[in-house]
Structures are given as C-alpha cells and as structure tokens.
Amino acid sequence: MTSPVIELCDVTRAYDEGPPALSQTSLTVRHGEAVAILGPSGSGKSTLLNLIAGLDRPDSGTVTVNGTRVDQLGEAGAAKYRRESVGMVFQFFNLLDDLTVADNVVLPAQLAGMQRAAAHRRAAELLEALGIARHARAYPGRLSGGQRQRVAVARALMNRPPLLLADEPTGALDRTSGEDVAGLLRELNADGQTIVVVTHDLALAQSCTSRTVELVDGRIIADLAVAR
C-alpha cells in the first residue's frame, strides 16, 4: 500500500462561538490519489483545505503532510512548507496581471531560491507540457479563463510539490474550459501527482478524481471510491 501524503487525526477547528467548522475529522490521502472534498457552503471544505495548506491551525488534533507536522509550524515554517510541499490552484487564478505568463510561473521558484536559468527552463517545460508555451510572453489578462487556469497549474507545479490542492478550480470557468481543466487534472494524476480538489460540483469530482469525501456540518459523512 502506498504511503500517506496527508494524515488528519481527530481535527477540530471552531471560530468565535458558533459550531465547529470541523469536528473530530480524520482523513488519510495516499501518494498518487486524486481525492475530491465535497459539500455545500459552510460544510468545512475551505477550513479543511486551509489546515492542509498550513494557512490555519486546528484547535485540537494533528495535521501531517508528507511527514511534516503542519499544525506545529510557525509562520516562517509554514511559508517554507508551502513553497516546498504544496502547490495551490484557486478559483480565480490569483495570477499577477503585471507579470507575463512565464514570470508568473517562475515566481515560486524565485521565492524558493532556485537559480534563474534553472527556473526558466523548468517554467518552459511546464508551459510546453500544459499546451500554453506560445503564451509565455503574454499577460494573463489577454488569455481565456481556461488558459489562465493552466498557467495557475503550471505555477503550482513549479517546485515539484508532492501535493496539489485545487480550490474550486473550475468555478470561474465556462463548461468547455471547466472540462478542459478537469481533463488536465486527470492527466496529472495519471502521471502520479497527488491531488486534492475542493468543490461543490459532483460532476467535476467524478470526472477527475478516484475518491470522494463528503463533508456536512464539519464532519465526514461519506468516503467513497468513484465508479469508472
């Protein structure tokens, strides 16, 4: 059996005086899996993603990613962890409009201290592999939504992270572009990339992942393999 990339054990996170966003949640994601986290708004999906990404800390329980106790990291340690271990793709791309496509993709490597020449070689390889090399010198605002999301994926993969997190990656796209991005996620997973997709879209989950985990009111109520 493949080793776990993500291990959450009895994680609880509450805000203010309301009910917990997550309540005693345990989850394991193994190397090479593609897992969708499903649930309506307020179910705890975003909290779960933020805990895995080291953007938040649990009130109790443990969060371990690729052997690192993420819940114990300080601010500097969490930033280093994200640079080295996690690639993130967002609903609204989060690209810098005043940088070219190539410079957006290179940015994580520059922050990690990679040599300029090596970083640009890596970016060129990714842009070629993702079918957008011809747009390397363009600015994001001149691209379609689907193309911008491919740039965002390239940027997320720049430092070869063991884990790719995608937060509603097709939420801002039309149907055709959304299907294109779902296909890209399938291809990445087929090549061995571990992926966690947070979405409310069951069709997306079933099209690009092999397992769905459903959250309701901060608790996992179902954890099922996707039938092919």
Score class of each variant (00 low, 15 high):
residue 79 A to M: 15
residue 57 R to L: 11
residue 128 E to P: 07
residue 225 A to V: 12
residue 63 V to D: 04
residue 176 T to P: 07
residue 79 A to R: 14
residue 55 L to D: 14
residue 207 S to T: 05
residue 138 A to E: 07
residue 200 H to C: 08
residue 86 V to N: 03
residue 106 V to H: 02
residue 70 V to S: 09
residue 24 Q to S: 09
residue 85 S to W: 09
residue 53 A to F: 14
residue 12 T to G: 06
residue 58 P to A: 10
residue 99 L to E: 12
residue 61 G to A: 09
residue 43 S to I: 06
residue 67 G to N: 06
residue 152 A to F: 01
residue 136 A to S: 14
residue 123 A to Q: 00
residue 24 Q to Y: 02
residue 134 R to Q: 13
residue 196 V to C: 04
residue 128 E to W: 12
residue 209 T to F: 01
residue 62 T to G: 02
residue 134 R to L: 12
residue 16 D to Y: 07
residue 159 N to D: 11
residue 161 P to R: 10
residue 165 L to V: 14
residue 219 R to F: 09
residue 225 A to H: 07
residue 169 P to K: 05
residue 90 F to V: 13
residue 160 R to V: 05
residue 54 G to Y: 08
residue 7 E to P: 00
residue 37 I to H: 04
residue 47 T to E: 10
residue 29 V to D: 00
residue 30 R to F: 09
residue 145 G to M: 05
residue 216 V to D: 04
residue 40 P to S: 12
residue 91 Q to F: 13
residue 43 S to E: 03
residue 116 R to S: 14
residue 6 I to D: 02
residue 117 A to R: 15
residue 46 S to F: 10
residue 173 L to I: 13
residue 154 A to H: 08
residue 193 Q to S: 07
residue 196 V to L: 07
residue 89 V to K: 02
residue 112 A to W: 12
residue 11 V to R: 00
residue 59 D to Q: 13
residue 143 L to F: 06
residue 64 T to L: 10
residue 215 L to D: 02
residue 169 P to G: 06
residue 145 G to V: 00
residue 184 L to N: 03
residue 205 A to Y: 06
residue 205 A to C: 11
residue 222 A to D: 11
residue 90 F to Q: 13
residue 137 R to Y: 04
residue 101 V to Y: 08
residue 63 V to E: 03
residue 147 Q to W: 10
residue 175 R to Q: 14
residue 8 L to N: 00
residue 72 Q to E: 14
residue 211 R to L: 03
residue 171 G to L: 12
residue 154 A to P: 02
residue 77 G to S: 13
residue 212 T to H: 06
residue 78 A to N: 15
residue 184 L to W: 02
residue 67 G to Q: 08
residue 169 P to L: 08
residue 68 T to M: 10
residue 169 P to N: 05
residue 152 A to Y: 00
residue 126 L to R: 02
residue 102 A to E: 03
residue 19 P to S: 06
residue 46 S to K: 12
residue 180 D to L: 10
residue 2 T to Q: 04
